[in-house]
């Protein structure tokens, strides 16, 4: 019982620290911690399968992706200073109010219905698997399609960069500005660093 609340607190704290963090990498690390905590919560709740899944996919794959990108972007100290500049305390007020209201509503809703004890029973991977390949089969298939779409999109969006850049530079210098064009080409004319 107490482990649930403790883990919960850890998760909340980690998330809070994450959003307050100035450094991107630090934030990411906090986020990973948060996810791990959530995974533990899942386990406590009797869902070992998703706990494992959380760790493997969420914390493992997605966060790693994030870290790769951050490292690729090579933000550095300048970014941290910029973040500080951006994060003014006054900006926290509005969203905080909103979130507070939301929290209040959710709590209210929850307290209305009866709250059962956690970890009533464990739902193992076998059941999940059966359900997945049973009634939710189509969901699985769609998810796979979605993933494929994401793959293609990410591939496409990421891949054009080096080649098109060169071509863009040559093209644009040769023909002047292209009419309309897509986002990529139009942006190629801008000088770097302009906000």
């Amino acid at each position: 019982m107490s482990s649930f609340y403790l883990t919960g607190a850890v998760a909340v704290a980690a998330t809070l620290l994450m959003i307050l963090s100035l450094n991107a990498v630090h934030a990411l690390l906090y986020l990973i911690v948060s996810f791990l905590a959530v995974a533990v919560i899942f386990y406590i709740l009797g869902a070992p399968f998703v706990a494992a899944l959380e760790v493997i996919v969420y914390a493992g794959a997605i966060m790693v992706l994030f870290i790769f990108v951050v490292m690729m972007l090579n933000l550095g100290r300048r970014a941290a200073a910029q973040e500080r500049a951006w994060l003014r305390p006054a900006m926290w007020i509005g969203p905080s109010i909103l979130a507070a209201i939301l929290l209040g509503e959710v709590v209210y809703l929850l307290t209305r219905a009866d709250v059962p004890a956690p970890a009533a029973q464990s739902v193992g991977p076998k059941e999940v698997g059966l359900v997945l390949f049973g009634p939710y089969l189509i969901g699985v298939e769609l998810t796979s399609v979605l993933l494929m779409g994401a793959l293609v999109a990410a591939y496409h969006l990421g891949w054009h960069r080096p080649k098109l850049e060169k071509a863009n530079v040559d093209d644009s210098r040769a023909r002047g500005a292209s009419p309309g064009g897509d986002f990529v080409r139009a942006g190629a004319d801008r000088s770097p660093g302009t906000p």
């Binding site: 998330t15 994060l87 969203p95 905080s96 939301l102 959710v106």
Partner: peptide, 13 residues
């Protein structure tokens, strides 16, 4: 946590 995430989304640039 959702609320925190929401706050974070709204605040950070």
């Amino acid at each position: 946590m959702f609320a925190l995430g929401l706050i974070g989304l709204l605040v950070r640039r």
